[in-house]
Design a protein around this nucleic acid. Sequence first.
DNA 1: CAGAAAAATGAATGATTATTCATTCAGAAT
DNA 2: ATTCTGAATGAATAATCATTCATTTTTCTG
Lengths: 209, 209
Amino acid sequence: MGEVAEKEDRRARARLARREQLIAATVKCIARKGLSSMTLSDVASQAGLSQGIVNLHFDSKENLLNETLRHVADDYRIQFQRALSRAEPTPAARLQAVLELDLKPSVCDRNKLAVWFAFWGESKARPAYRKISGEVDQDYDNDMKRLCADVIEEGGYENVTAEAATEALTSMTYGMWLSCLINPQSWDRKAAKDAIMSYLRNVFPDHYA
Amino acid sequence: MGEVAEKEDRRARARLARREQLIAATVKCIARKGLSSMTLSDVASQAGLSQGIVNLHFDSKENLLNETLRHVADDYRIQFQRALSRAEPTPAARLQAVLELDLKPSVCDRNKLAVWFAFWGESKARPAYRKISGEVDQDYDNDMKRLCADVIEEGGYENVTAEAATEALTSMTYGMWLSCLINPQSWDRKAAKDAIMSYLRNVFPDHYA
DNA sequence: CAGAAAAATGAATGATTATTCATTCAGAAT
DNA sequence: ATTCTGAATGAATAATCATTCATTTTTCTG
């Protein structure tokens, strides 16, 4: 690699780092003030930088928000894939791994959840948001459906369909995220996990007894 | 009742009607544009009235939003009580009635859901919102817990605690609302109901077989 | 019907805030 | 050391929007 290329690399890396810094500041601001009262000044000062900085790096507020949502979505996708690949390679273990991930502090974190819900709350109004979060939702749903179908086939369960189990589990997860976001003091990670495990034990007794 | 009082009544009723008209317009605007880009002009023209009308009736935008959330919350509370009182007076039937209500079009309606999620998305930032929606959430949770506990006691179930069942069912409901809001085309009311009923059959087999 | 009171209007105001841009700064190239 | 380049600043600008208020319209009263 030539020196010129290396310099350009360094520039590019610094640029990227600044963008991520601004996105992190945006996440904090959305959590603190909500989408509707968050201003670009808030973001700049949260990042310890000056007024014009966001437009310099992101051109517009709209674009900053899109990139922020994309960043949070990618972050989740990566954790999801990692959880899947680290789990024992049985459908039951993989299913459990995904459900546990969704309650881990690295996912079930009030700042990140605030971002998800802020955008979900506006998704009807903004196709761009719907597109970004829709991709993650879609993949998540497909993977869950396959895992549930595999568990059901393996156990020969006739008490539930893959669709019903998927619907129940994904809905529960979303609902728990909401509780975590809006009732932080009373919400209890362990109780949430118990509820999920109780479901699994009742519906797939041979796998989670 | 004297004529004066009657007249004042008429005035008061007209005033109330206009306020409700404006709240209805606000709900539509929140659903269409999201909390963050909804303006008072939008609300006024959605209602077919003029610029200054909102401040005339609600003093401020902030107040309009609070009243709107309160209205949606009261609407839910009323439907909830009605569903409870109409159901057969057994815990199992009452529990099912509540869960079915939550999927009925009169509750699971994209406009109303958009309002709930818009405010939930901002609740961390705005204590006023948290207070209003918190009351409903709290009551809901308490009622569900009692119903689950009664069903469990009646059936002598030992496979699940009232807490876990409540957590599972309320979370599922919230999650289904979210799906209904953000995936309107693929979301399916009947599949959601199936998932809930499947849960009930598996966990409380003697009651929902 | 006249006049008073209330409701509604919509143009004007003021505050907020996204965006622009002339200027400064830091560091790389020559 | 000097010049050049891209990054960053922050004051100025422009747009948006909540709010106000003088005026008009509607409704009620005697």
